[in-house]
């Protein structure tokens, strides 16, 4: 299929982006890596009247580290994320996640901002951001506002982003030398996971962020507490009350719940072996 017609505009500064968003309102869509959006256009699942290409906006690029915080620009491609030394040092969970995302060609274009803004519940990066307790920087003409990851993902493909806003960056407190692990089960290399788990240790506590098990990436506090206390079985048992996975082509809810328990066991072993 071919996309329905649309107009196309290229922005090079955030100010231009805000202008264009203001002019076109809801009928406009931002185009980042295009690895989800262009597929949706080709399938005519999305038919915006204007595409605003933000790939030329320098302010959305770059990875930097200052004051104990890692800042990752929204336009950072998956491939860059996976290869960046600062990311490997301060947010190794993200580096671990990258090889699981799609295939090389898609990682060359897809961006972290696009992945987070899309908020696919089976995607790796939103769950990692949740496990990292990252802060999302949302920019609009009024300035920047910072939203905690747990407040950003609001429902199926729903985020805290307003129509006049752009996701500019994510900020992450350094997790250097803190154990973490990313576990997922996907049918084939590069497929979205049936179930996945991003686990990040943090000063005696543990953050478990799940993907593929609900409408959004989710944390499971009771399982976290049990696991932090060294009770793997208790953590696995707690999942029944904390996860309510959907049924889909992969199988019934019980499949995902079971696989989540298995992944939890594997994550516990991986963190222990760290």
């Amino acid at each position: 299929m071919k996309p329905a017609p649309f107009a196309y505009a290229r922005a090079t500064t955030l100010a231009e982006v805000f202008d264009l968003l203001e002019t076109h309102g809801d009928s406009a869509r931002l185009l980042a890596g295009g690895q989800s959006l262009v597929a949706a256009l080709n399938l005519r699942l999305a038919s915006p009247s204007v595409l605003l290409d933000i790939n030329g906006v320098a302010a959305l690029r770059g990875i930097s580290f200052a004051d104990g915080r890692l800042r990752i620009g929204a336009l950072t491609r998956h491939a860059e994320l996976g290869a960046d030394p600062l990311v490997a040092q301060h947010a190794p969970l993200l580096a671990q996640a990258v090889p699981h995302i799609a295939h090389a060609a898609i990682r060359n274009r897809g961006t972290i901002g696009g992945s987070l803004a899309l908020a696919d519940p089976a995607a790796e990066l939103p769950a990692c951001i949740l496990a990292l307790e990252a802060v999302l920087v949302l920019a609009s003409r009024e300035g920047e506002r910072r939203v905690a990851a747990r407040d950003f993902f609001q429902g199926l493909y729903q985020t805290a982003l307003r129509g006049d806003e752009v996701l500019a960056a994510v900020e992450i407190a350094s997790q250097a030398d803190v154990p973490c692990t990313l576990q997922e089960l996907a049918r084939r290399h590069g497929d979205y996971a049936i179930v996945g788990l991003a686990a990040q240790s943090a000063r005696g506590a543990l953050r478990l962020a799940w993907f593929g098990v609900g409408a959004t990436p989710l944390r499971t506090p009771r399982a976290e507490a049990a696991l932090a206390a060294g009770d793997v079985a208790g953590a696995q048992a707690a999942l029944a009350g904390e996860l309510d996975p959907p049924e889909d082509l992969h199988g019934p809810p019980a499949l995902r719940l079971h696989l989540a328990r298995v992944l939890l066991g594997r994550a516990a072993a991986a963190l222990k072996g760290h």
């Binding site: 049918r187 199988g251 019934p252 079971h258």
Partner: peptide
């Protein structure tokens, strides 16, 4: 022979 069918056969789900 999907994971769901194999786990069902194993009585795990």
């Amino acid at each position: 022979f999907t994971p769901a069918r194999i786990l069902t056969a194993l009585g795990k789900i």
